[in-house]
Design a protein around this nucleic acid. Sequence first.
DNA 1: CGCAAACTTGATGTTGCTCAAGCTAGGTGG
DNA 2: CCACCTAGCTTGAGCAACATCAAGTTTGCG
Lengths: 238, 238
Amino acid sequence: MQVQTVAKSTPRIDFAALTLCRGLGQQATSRIATISTIQSVSASQVVFYEGDEADSIYEVVRGTLKIYKLLPDGRRQITGFLSEGHLLGLSLDGTYTYSAEAMTDLVLCRYPRSHFDRIVSEMPGLAQRLLTATSDELRAAQDQMLLLGRKSAEEKIASFLLMLARSHSLGDEENVLEIPMGRDDIADYLGLSIETVSRTLTKLKRAGIIALPMSSRVVLQDRGRLEELAGGEFAESL
Amino acid sequence: MQVQTVAKSTPRIDFAALTLCRGLGQQATSRIATISTIQSVSASQVVFYEGDEADSIYEVVRGTLKIYKLLPDGRRQITGFLSEGHLLGLSLDGTYTYSAEAMTDLVLCRYPRSHFDRIVSEMPGLAQRLLTATSDELRAAQDQMLLLGRKSAEEKIASFLLMLARSHSLGDEENVLEIPMGRDDIADYLGLSIETVSRTLTKLKRAGIIALPMSSRVVLQDRGRLEELAGGEFAESL
DNA sequence: CGCAAACTTGATGTTGCTCAAGCTAGGTGG
DNA sequence: CCACCTAGCTTGAGCAACATCAAGTTTGCG
Protein backbone atom coordinates (compact mmCIF):
# COMPACT_ATOMS: atom_id res chain seq x y z
CA MET A 1 0.00 0.00 0.00
CA GLN A 2 2.99 2.30 0.41
CA VAL A 3 2.77 4.77 -2.44
CA GLN A 4 5.95 6.69 -2.00
CA THR A 5 8.09 8.75 -4.23
CA VAL A 6 11.74 8.75 -3.33
CA ALA A 7 13.59 11.58 -4.98
CA LYS A 8 16.55 10.80 -7.16
CA SER A 9 18.64 13.46 -5.49
CA THR A 10 18.51 13.12 -1.72
CA PRO A 11 18.14 16.57 -0.17
CA ARG A 12 20.84 17.60 2.25
CA ILE A 13 19.71 17.48 5.83
CA ASP A 14 21.02 19.06 8.98
CA PHE A 15 20.47 16.20 11.37
CA ALA A 16 21.32 18.20 14.46
CA ALA A 17 18.28 20.39 13.75
CA LEU A 18 15.81 17.49 13.75
CA THR A 19 13.25 17.29 16.50
CA LEU A 20 14.52 13.86 17.36
CA CYS A 21 18.12 15.02 17.75
CA ARG A 22 17.88 18.47 19.21
CA GLY A 23 19.51 18.59 22.58
CA LEU A 24 21.27 15.27 22.12
CA GLY A 25 25.02 15.15 21.71
CA GLN A 26 27.03 15.08 18.51
CA GLN A 27 27.55 11.35 18.86
CA ALA A 28 23.91 10.57 19.33
CA THR A 29 23.04 12.72 16.36
CA SER A 30 25.36 10.91 14.02
CA ARG A 31 24.10 7.62 15.39
CA ILE A 32 20.59 8.66 14.46
CA ALA A 33 21.77 9.84 11.07
CA THR A 34 23.06 6.38 10.28
CA ILE A 35 19.77 4.63 10.92
CA SER A 36 17.59 7.12 9.14
CA THR A 37 16.79 7.60 5.49
CA ILE A 38 15.60 10.76 3.80
CA GLN A 39 12.54 10.49 1.68
CA SER A 40 10.86 12.95 -0.65
CA VAL A 41 7.14 12.72 -1.23
CA SER A 42 5.22 14.84 -3.66
CA ALA A 43 2.01 16.66 -2.85
CA SER A 44 -1.12 14.51 -2.51
CA GLN A 45 0.85 11.28 -2.24
CA VAL A 46 -0.05 9.03 0.65
CA VAL A 47 2.82 8.29 3.04
CA PHE A 48 1.01 5.40 4.70
CA TYR A 49 -2.52 4.13 5.21
CA GLU A 50 -4.29 3.31 8.43
CA GLY A 51 -3.90 -0.40 8.93
CA ASP A 52 -0.56 -0.68 7.13
CA GLU A 53 2.17 -2.39 9.03
CA ALA A 54 3.85 0.33 11.09
CA ASP A 55 7.41 -0.36 10.13
CA SER A 56 8.69 3.20 10.39
CA ILE A 57 8.49 6.41 12.34
CA TYR A 58 8.74 9.64 10.35
CA GLU A 59 9.72 13.19 11.05
CA VAL A 60 8.55 16.01 8.81
CA VAL A 61 11.63 17.88 7.65
CA ARG A 62 9.95 20.14 5.12
CA GLY A 63 6.36 20.63 4.01
CA THR A 64 3.00 19.82 5.56
CA LEU A 65 0.88 16.71 5.71
CA LYS A 66 -2.49 15.75 7.07
CA ILE A 67 -3.35 12.70 9.13
CA TYR A 68 -6.87 11.32 9.07
CA LYS A 69 -9.16 8.43 9.83
CA LEU A 70 -11.93 7.10 7.60
CA LEU A 71 -15.25 5.40 8.18
CA PRO A 72 -16.14 2.54 5.84
CA ASP A 73 -18.51 4.76 3.85
CA GLY A 74 -15.84 7.34 3.19
CA ARG A 75 -16.59 9.93 5.86
CA ARG A 76 -13.28 11.36 6.95
CA GLN A 77 -11.98 13.04 10.06
CA ILE A 78 -8.68 14.88 9.75
CA THR A 79 -7.07 14.66 13.17
CA GLY A 80 -4.13 16.91 12.50
CA PHE A 81 -2.02 18.95 10.12
CA LEU A 82 1.66 18.26 10.72
CA SER A 83 4.44 20.53 9.59
CA GLU A 84 8.19 20.74 10.00
CA GLY A 85 9.43 19.15 13.19
CA HIS A 86 6.45 16.90 13.85
CA LEU A 87 6.77 13.18 14.31
CA LEU A 88 4.33 10.63 13.01
CA GLY A 89 3.79 6.92 13.06
CA LEU A 90 4.61 6.41 16.73
CA SER A 91 2.04 3.67 17.07
CA LEU A 92 2.13 1.02 19.73
CA ASP A 93 0.79 -2.03 18.09
CA GLY A 94 1.94 -3.21 14.74
CA THR A 95 -0.16 -1.05 12.44
CA TYR A 96 -0.68 2.64 11.79
CA THR A 97 -3.83 3.97 13.38
CA TYR A 98 -4.36 6.73 10.83
CA SER A 99 -3.46 7.57 7.25
CA ALA A 100 -0.97 10.27 6.33
CA GLU A 101 -1.06 12.26 3.11
CA ALA A 102 1.24 14.98 1.82
CA MET A 103 -0.41 18.37 1.35
CA THR A 104 2.69 19.91 -0.17
CA ASP A 105 5.86 18.37 -1.50
CA LEU A 106 7.52 16.85 1.53
CA VAL A 107 10.88 15.88 2.83
CA LEU A 108 10.64 13.24 5.52
CA CYS A 109 13.19 11.59 7.71
CA ARG A 110 12.39 7.93 8.17
CA TYR A 111 13.45 5.80 11.11
CA PRO A 112 12.90 2.07 10.76
CA ARG A 113 10.90 0.78 13.67
CA SER A 114 13.37 -1.84 14.84
CA HIS A 115 16.33 0.54 14.96
CA PHE A 116 14.18 3.25 16.44
CA ASP A 117 13.14 1.19 19.43
CA ARG A 118 16.70 0.20 20.12
CA ILE A 119 17.94 3.75 19.95
CA VAL A 120 15.20 4.98 22.24
CA SER A 121 16.13 2.49 24.91
CA GLU A 122 19.83 3.20 24.55
CA MET A 123 19.68 6.97 24.59
CA PRO A 124 18.68 8.51 27.85
CA GLY A 125 16.62 11.60 27.32
CA LEU A 126 15.24 10.57 23.96
CA ALA A 127 12.15 8.90 25.40
CA GLN A 128 11.53 12.02 27.45
CA ARG A 129 11.64 14.17 24.33
CA LEU A 130 9.19 11.87 22.63
CA LEU A 131 6.98 11.96 25.70
CA THR A 132 6.93 15.73 25.62
CA ALA A 133 6.03 15.78 21.94
CA THR A 134 3.30 13.19 22.39
CA SER A 135 1.84 14.90 25.46
CA ASP A 136 1.60 18.08 23.49
CA GLU A 137 -0.26 16.33 20.70
CA LEU A 138 -2.58 14.82 23.26
CA ARG A 139 -3.33 18.25 24.66
CA ALA A 140 -4.07 19.51 21.17
CA ALA A 141 -6.32 16.51 20.58
CA GLN A 142 -8.30 17.32 23.70
CA ASP A 143 -8.77 20.90 22.56
CA GLN A 144 -9.99 19.56 19.26
CA MET A 145 -12.47 17.25 21.01
CA LEU A 146 -13.95 20.27 22.76
CA LEU A 147 -14.21 21.99 19.40
CA LEU A 148 -15.76 19.02 17.62
CA GLY A 149 -18.18 18.10 20.35
CA ARG A 150 -19.34 21.44 21.64
CA LYS A 151 -18.63 24.36 19.31
CA SER A 152 -20.92 25.83 16.65
CA ALA A 153 -19.81 26.20 13.04
CA GLU A 154 -18.95 29.84 13.61
CA GLU A 155 -16.92 29.04 16.71
CA LYS A 156 -15.14 26.24 14.88
CA ILE A 157 -14.11 28.47 11.99
CA ALA A 158 -13.03 31.27 14.31
CA SER A 159 -10.94 28.85 16.37
CA PHE A 160 -9.43 27.40 13.21
CA LEU A 161 -8.38 30.79 11.86
CA LEU A 162 -6.81 31.71 15.18
CA MET A 163 -4.98 28.41 15.27
CA LEU A 164 -3.58 29.11 11.81
CA ALA A 165 -2.63 32.60 12.90
CA ARG A 166 -0.73 31.17 15.84
CA SER A 167 1.13 28.53 13.87
CA HIS A 168 2.10 30.84 11.02
CA SER A 169 2.84 33.53 13.55
CA LEU A 170 5.47 36.14 12.86
CA GLY A 171 5.94 34.90 9.35
CA ASP A 172 4.12 37.09 6.90
CA GLU A 173 2.57 40.37 7.75
CA GLU A 174 0.68 40.24 10.96
CA ASN A 175 -2.94 39.20 10.34
CA VAL A 176 -2.54 37.97 6.78
CA LEU A 177 -2.96 34.21 6.57
CA GLU A 178 -2.15 31.87 3.76
CA ILE A 179 -4.56 28.95 4.01
CA PRO A 180 -2.63 25.93 2.82
CA MET A 181 -5.55 23.51 2.47
CA GLY A 182 -8.76 23.28 0.51
CA ARG A 183 -12.26 23.81 1.89
CA ASP A 184 -12.73 20.04 1.93
CA ASP A 185 -9.81 19.58 4.31
CA ILE A 186 -11.03 22.38 6.56
CA ALA A 187 -14.45 20.76 6.62
CA ASP A 188 -13.07 17.35 7.51
CA TYR A 189 -10.88 18.85 10.20
CA LEU A 190 -13.72 20.76 11.85
CA GLY A 191 -16.47 18.21 11.41
CA LEU A 192 -18.47 20.36 8.98
CA SER A 193 -19.55 20.21 5.35
CA ILE A 194 -17.68 22.12 2.67
CA GLU A 195 -20.70 24.35 2.16
CA THR A 196 -20.92 25.30 5.81
CA VAL A 197 -17.22 26.21 5.84
CA SER A 198 -17.74 28.44 2.83
CA ARG A 199 -20.91 30.05 4.15
CA THR A 200 -19.37 30.70 7.56
CA LEU A 201 -16.32 32.37 6.03
CA THR A 202 -18.64 34.53 3.93
CA LYS A 203 -20.58 35.44 7.04
CA LEU A 204 -17.43 36.52 8.88
CA LYS A 205 -16.45 38.52 5.82
CA ARG A 206 -19.80 40.29 5.69
CA ALA A 207 -19.47 41.07 9.40
CA GLY A 208 -16.18 42.79 8.64
CA ILE A 209 -14.21 40.43 10.87
CA ILE A 210 -12.11 38.99 8.07
CA ALA A 211 -11.38 39.74 4.43
CA LEU A 212 -10.98 37.11 1.73
CA PRO A 213 -8.92 38.61 -1.10
CA MET A 214 -8.55 35.09 -2.53
CA SER A 215 -10.04 31.82 -1.44
CA SER A 216 -6.71 30.77 0.00
CA ARG A 217 -5.99 33.99 1.84
CA VAL A 218 -7.59 35.45 4.93
CA VAL A 219 -6.96 38.83 6.49
CA LEU A 220 -7.87 39.08 10.14
CA GLN A 221 -9.45 42.50 10.41
CA ASP A 222 -10.82 42.22 13.90
CA ARG A 223 -8.92 39.69 15.89
CA GLY A 224 -10.65 40.65 19.09
CA ARG A 225 -14.08 39.78 17.78
CA LEU A 226 -12.69 36.58 16.27
CA GLU A 227 -11.37 35.58 19.67
CA GLU A 228 -14.75 36.23 21.24
CA LEU A 229 -16.43 34.12 18.59
CA ALA A 230 -13.94 31.30 19.12
CA GLY A 231 -15.40 30.90 22.58
CA GLY A 232 -12.14 31.43 24.39
CA GLU A 233 -11.27 28.18 26.04
CA PHE A 234 -8.62 28.30 28.71
CA ALA A 235 -5.78 27.81 26.27
CA GLU A 236 -6.56 31.14 24.65
CA SER A 237 -5.46 33.01 27.73
CA LEU A 238 -1.89 31.84 27.39
CA MET B 1 -8.92 25.57 44.12
CA GLN B 2 -7.89 22.09 45.19
CA VAL B 3 -10.93 20.60 46.82
CA GLN B 4 -9.56 17.36 48.06
CA THR B 5 -10.53 14.97 50.72
CA VAL B 6 -7.66 13.09 52.25
CA ALA B 7 -8.81 10.06 54.13
CA LYS B 8 -7.91 9.69 57.76
CA SER B 9 -6.88 6.11 57.26
CA THR B 10 -4.52 5.75 54.34
CA PRO B 11 -5.44 2.67 52.33
CA ARG B 12 -2.73 0.08 51.92
CA ILE B 13 -1.23 0.04 48.48
CA ASP B 14 0.75 -2.50 46.56
CA PHE B 15 3.23 -0.21 44.87
CA ALA B 16 4.68 -2.86 42.64
CA ALA B 17 1.29 -3.18 40.97
CA LEU B 18 1.11 0.48 39.96
CA THR B 19 1.25 1.39 36.31
CA LEU B 20 4.19 3.60 37.02
CA CYS B 21 6.18 0.81 38.70
CA ARG B 22 5.26 -2.31 36.83
CA GLY B 23 8.28 -3.79 35.16
CA LEU B 24 10.71 -1.71 37.17
CA GLY B 25 12.91 -3.31 39.81
CA GLN B 26 12.29 -3.65 43.50
CA GLN B 27 14.61 -0.76 44.22
CA ALA B 28 12.93 1.59 41.78
CA THR B 29 9.55 0.68 43.17
CA SER B 30 10.47 1.55 46.73
CA ARG B 31 12.06 4.75 45.47
CA ILE B 32 8.76 5.68 43.87
CA ALA B 33 6.90 4.70 47.02
CA THR B 34 8.89 7.22 49.01
CA ILE B 35 8.03 10.17 46.82
CA SER B 36 4.37 9.37 46.44
CA THR B 37 1.43 9.98 48.70
CA ILE B 38 -1.86 8.14 48.72
CA GLN B 39 -4.98 10.21 48.54
CA SER B 40 -8.63 9.31 48.88
CA VAL B 41 -11.24 11.39 47.10
CA SER B 42 -14.94 10.89 47.43
CA ALA B 43 -17.36 10.72 44.56
CA SER B 44 -18.12 13.99 42.77
CA GLN B 45 -15.19 15.79 44.33
CA VAL B 46 -12.91 17.65 41.94
CA VAL B 47 -9.28 16.50 41.97
CA PHE B 48 -8.04 19.56 40.09
CA TYR B 49 -9.37 22.24 37.76
CA GLU B 50 -8.14 23.21 34.34
CA GLY B 51 -5.83 26.14 34.87
CA ASP B 52 -4.67 25.11 38.33
CA GLU B 53 -0.95 24.96 38.83
CA ALA B 54 0.07 21.45 37.77
CA ASP B 55 2.09 20.49 40.79
CA SER B 56 1.35 16.78 40.77
CA ILE B 57 0.88 13.76 38.56
CA TYR B 58 -1.71 11.21 39.68
CA GLU B 59 -2.35 7.57 39.12
CA VAL B 60 -5.80 6.11 39.62
CA VAL B 61 -5.44 3.23 42.07
CA ARG B 62 -9.13 2.52 42.60
CA GLY B 63 -12.30 4.01 41.19
CA THR B 64 -13.12 6.03 38.09
CA LEU B 65 -12.89 9.70 37.25
CA LYS B 66 -13.75 11.90 34.31
CA ILE B 67 -11.60 14.57 32.74
CA TYR B 68 -13.21 17.43 30.88
CA LYS B 69 -12.84 20.88 29.41
CA LEU B 70 -15.32 23.74 29.69
CA LEU B 71 -16.27 26.67 27.52
CA PRO B 72 -16.90 29.97 29.29
CA ASP B 73 -20.67 29.55 28.99
CA GLY B 74 -20.60 26.16 30.68
CA ARG B 75 -20.71 23.83 27.72
CA ARG B 76 -18.62 20.83 28.62
CA GLN B 77 -16.69 18.20 26.72
CA ILE B 78 -15.65 15.11 28.63
CA THR B 79 -12.44 13.92 27.00
CA GLY B 80 -12.05 10.71 28.92
CA PHE B 81 -13.12 8.38 31.68
CA LEU B 82 -10.08 7.11 33.56
CA SER B 83 -10.09 4.03 35.73
CA GLU B 84 -7.58 1.99 37.65
CA GLY B 85 -4.07 2.21 36.25
CA HIS B 86 -4.50 5.43 34.30
CA LEU B 87 -2.23 8.41 34.80
CA LEU B 88 -3.38 12.00 34.75
CA GLY B 89 -1.91 15.44 35.05
CA LEU B 90 1.07 14.85 32.81
CA SER B 91 0.97 18.38 31.47
CA LEU B 92 3.89 20.13 29.91
CA ASP B 93 3.52 23.69 30.90
CA GLY B 94 2.76 24.74 34.42
CA THR B 95 -1.00 24.29 34.53
CA TYR B 96 -3.48 21.48 34.07
CA THR B 97 -5.16 21.56 30.68
CA TYR B 98 -8.35 19.89 31.87
CA SER B 99 -10.36 19.37 35.03
CA ALA B 100 -10.62 16.00 36.78
CA GLU B 101 -13.59 14.91 38.86
CA ALA B 102 -14.21 11.71 40.79
CA MET B 103 -17.15 9.65 39.53
CA THR B 104 -16.84 7.12 42.31
CA ASP B 105 -14.90 7.18 45.54
CA LEU B 106 -11.29 7.17 44.49
CA VAL B 107 -7.90 6.17 45.70
CA LEU B 108 -5.16 8.09 43.94
CA CYS B 109 -1.41 7.89 44.10
CA ARG B 110 0.09 11.34 43.88
CA TYR B 111 3.58 12.13 42.63
CA PRO B 112 4.78 15.67 43.23
CA ARG B 113 5.92 17.21 40.00
CA SER B 114 9.45 18.08 41.06
CA HIS B 115 10.26 14.59 42.33
CA PHE B 116 8.50 13.04 39.41
CA ASP B 117 10.65 14.78 36.82
CA ARG B 118 13.80 13.80 38.63
CA ILE B 119 12.77 10.19 38.90
CA VAL B 120 11.83 10.04 35.25
CA SER B 121 15.24 11.25 34.18
CA GLU B 122 17.03 8.93 36.59
CA MET B 123 15.15 5.76 35.79
CA PRO B 124 15.79 4.34 32.39
CA GLY B 125 12.68 2.76 31.02
CA LEU B 126 10.26 4.89 32.93
CA ALA B 127 9.96 7.56 30.25
CA GLN B 128 9.33 4.80 27.75
CA ARG B 129 6.50 3.44 29.84
CA LEU B 130 4.98 6.89 30.07
CA LEU B 131 5.41 7.33 26.34
CA THR B 132 3.53 4.12 25.71
CA ALA B 133 0.70 5.16 27.99
CA THR B 134 0.48 8.62 26.45
CA SER B 135 0.61 7.30 22.89
CA ASP B 136 -2.25 5.02 23.68
CA GLU B 137 -4.31 7.89 25.04
CA LEU B 138 -3.52 9.86 21.92
CA ARG B 139 -4.76 7.01 19.78
CA ALA B 140 -7.97 6.89 21.79
CA ALA B 141 -8.32 10.66 21.42
CA GLN B 142 -8.06 10.35 17.65
CA ASP B 143 -10.75 7.68 17.62
CA GLN B 144 -12.91 10.02 19.66
CA MET B 145 -12.31 12.87 17.20
CA LEU B 146 -13.64 10.65 14.43
CA LEU B 147 -16.65 9.88 16.56
CA LEU B 148 -17.32 13.51 17.51
CA GLY B 149 -16.75 14.95 14.08
CA ARG B 150 -18.30 12.40 11.80
CA LYS B 151 -20.64 9.97 13.52
CA SER B 152 -24.41 10.24 13.93
CA ALA B 153 -26.08 10.04 17.34
CA GLU B 154 -26.91 6.38 16.78
CA GLU B 155 -23.36 5.57 15.74
CA LYS B 156 -22.02 7.45 18.74
CA ILE B 157 -24.18 5.56 21.22
CA ALA B 158 -23.39 2.23 19.59
CA SER B 159 -19.66 2.98 19.69
CA PHE B 160 -19.94 4.06 23.30
CA LEU B 161 -21.69 0.88 24.39
CA LEU B 162 -19.11 -1.24 22.62
CA MET B 163 -16.32 0.74 24.24
CA LEU B 164 -17.85 0.06 27.64
CA ALA B 165 -18.23 -3.59 26.77
CA ARG B 166 -14.56 -3.76 25.90
CA SER B 167 -13.32 -2.02 29.02
CA HIS B 168 -15.53 -3.97 31.41
CA SER B 169 -14.80 -7.08 29.43
CA LEU B 170 -14.74 -10.48 31.08
CA GLY B 171 -15.97 -9.03 34.33
CA ASP B 172 -19.67 -9.62 34.72
CA GLU B 173 -21.70 -11.83 32.54
CA GLU B 174 -20.92 -11.38 28.94
CA ASN B 175 -23.12 -8.67 27.40
CA VAL B 176 -24.44 -7.18 30.62
CA LEU B 177 -23.05 -3.70 31.17
CA GLU B 178 -23.13 -1.59 34.27
CA ILE B 179 -23.14 2.05 33.10
CA PRO B 180 -21.22 3.93 35.75
CA MET B 181 -22.12 7.48 34.66
CA GLY B 182 -25.27 9.52 34.26
CA ARG B 183 -26.93 10.50 30.99
CA ASP B 184 -25.43 13.96 31.33
CA ASP B 185 -21.90 12.55 31.34
CA ILE B 186 -22.64 10.31 28.38
CA ALA B 187 -24.02 13.33 26.52
CA ASP B 188 -20.98 15.46 27.26
CA TYR B 189 -18.67 12.64 26.25
CA LEU B 190 -20.38 12.05 22.91
CA GLY B 191 -21.19 15.65 22.03
CA LEU B 192 -24.95 15.15 22.30
CA SER B 193 -27.79 16.44 24.47
CA ILE B 194 -29.11 14.38 27.37
CA GLU B 195 -32.41 13.94 25.57
CA THR B 196 -30.80 12.59 22.43
CA VAL B 197 -28.85 10.05 24.49
CA SER B 198 -32.05 8.91 26.13
CA ARG B 199 -34.04 8.76 22.92
CA THR B 200 -31.30 6.90 21.07
CA LEU B 201 -31.06 4.28 23.81
CA THR B 202 -34.82 3.87 23.67
CA LYS B 203 -34.61 3.46 19.92
CA LEU B 204 -31.99 0.72 20.22
CA LYS B 205 -34.15 -0.93 22.83
CA ARG B 206 -37.22 -0.85 20.59
CA ALA B 207 -35.13 -2.32 17.78
CA GLY B 208 -34.28 -5.23 20.07
CA ILE B 209 -30.56 -4.52 19.93
CA ILE B 210 -30.24 -3.79 23.64
CA ALA B 211 -32.33 -4.14 26.77
CA LEU B 212 -32.49 -1.57 29.57
CA PRO B 213 -33.60 -3.35 32.73
CA MET B 214 -32.57 -0.23 34.69
CA SER B 215 -31.31 3.11 33.52
CA SER B 216 -27.80 2.18 34.60
CA ARG B 217 -27.76 -1.26 33.03
CA VAL B 218 -27.60 -2.30 29.42
CA VAL B 219 -27.82 -5.79 28.01
CA LEU B 220 -26.32 -6.22 24.58
CA GLN B 221 -28.78 -8.46 22.82
CA ASP B 222 -27.41 -8.20 19.33
CA ARG B 223 -23.78 -7.26 19.40
CA GLY B 224 -23.38 -7.83 15.69
CA ARG B 225 -25.97 -5.22 14.79
CA LEU B 226 -24.50 -2.87 17.34
CA GLU B 227 -21.11 -3.19 15.69
CA GLU B 228 -22.64 -2.46 12.31
CA LEU B 229 -24.32 0.63 13.71
CA ALA B 230 -21.07 1.80 15.30
CA GLY B 231 -19.73 2.24 11.79
CA GLY B 232 -16.81 -0.08 12.27
CA GLU B 233 -13.69 1.99 12.13
CA PHE B 234 -10.44 0.14 11.67
CA ALA B 235 -9.89 -0.38 15.37
CA GLU B 236 -12.96 -2.59 15.53
CA SER B 237 -11.32 -5.23 13.44
CA LEU B 238 -8.62 -5.90 16.00
C1' DC C 1 -44.81 7.98 52.26
C1' DG C 2 -43.15 11.88 50.13
C1' DC C 3 -39.59 14.29 47.94
C1' DA C 4 -35.89 15.27 44.73
C1' DA C 5 -32.97 13.86 41.22
C1' DA C 6 -32.51 11.42 37.15
C1' DC C 7 -34.51 9.84 33.23
C1' DT C 8 -37.95 9.65 29.39
C1' DT C 9 -41.13 11.43 26.17
C1' DG C 10 -43.42 14.89 23.33
C1' DA C 11 -43.75 19.25 20.65
C1' DT C 12 -41.33 22.67 18.45
C1' DG C 13 -37.22 25.22 16.76
C1' DT C 14 -32.59 25.71 14.73
C1' DT C 15 -28.42 24.43 12.88
C1' DG C 16 -26.01 22.59 9.56
C1' DC C 17 -26.43 18.99 5.73
C1' DT C 18 -27.82 17.74 1.04
C1' DC C 19 -28.82 18.60 -3.49
C1' DA C 20 -28.46 21.69 -7.21
C1' DA C 21 -26.87 25.57 -9.68
C1' DG C 22 -23.73 29.32 -10.59
C1' DC C 23 -19.28 31.51 -10.28
C1' DT C 24 -14.16 32.17 -10.52
C1' DA C 25 -9.43 31.39 -11.35
C1' DG C 26 -5.78 28.93 -13.17
C1' DG C 27 -4.09 26.02 -16.70
C1' DT C 28 -4.10 24.30 -21.61
C1' DG C 29 -4.28 24.16 -26.40
C1' DG C 30 -5.33 26.55 -30.50
C1' DC D 1 -2.96 35.93 -26.54
C1' DC D 2 -7.31 34.35 -25.93
C1' DA D 3 -11.06 31.14 -25.35
C1' DC D 4 -12.22 27.19 -23.19
C1' DC D 5 -12.29 23.83 -19.61
C1' DT D 6 -12.08 22.11 -15.19
C1' DA D 7 -11.53 22.03 -10.23
C1' DG D 8 -12.55 24.49 -6.40
C1' DC D 9 -15.47 27.62 -4.30
C1' DT D 10 -19.87 30.03 -3.37
C1' DT D 11 -24.77 30.52 -3.08
C1' DG D 12 -29.58 29.09 -2.71
C1' DA D 13 -33.61 26.12 -1.41
C1' DG D 14 -35.35 22.46 1.11
C1' DC D 15 -34.77 19.07 4.59
C1' DA D 16 -33.11 16.02 8.36
C1' DA D 17 -30.96 15.54 12.58
C1' DC D 18 -30.45 17.08 16.72
C1' DA D 19 -31.24 20.77 20.34
C1' DT D 20 -34.36 23.09 23.24
C1' DC D 21 -38.31 23.68 25.97
C1' DA D 22 -41.76 21.56 28.65
C1' DA D 23 -44.16 17.96 30.82
C1' DG D 24 -44.50 13.45 32.65
C1' DT D 25 -42.47 9.25 34.85
C1' DT D 26 -39.47 6.47 37.52
C1' DT D 27 -36.19 5.64 41.12
C1' DG D 28 -33.87 5.92 45.22
C1' DC D 29 -33.64 7.85 49.68
C1' DG D 30 -34.78 10.11 54.10
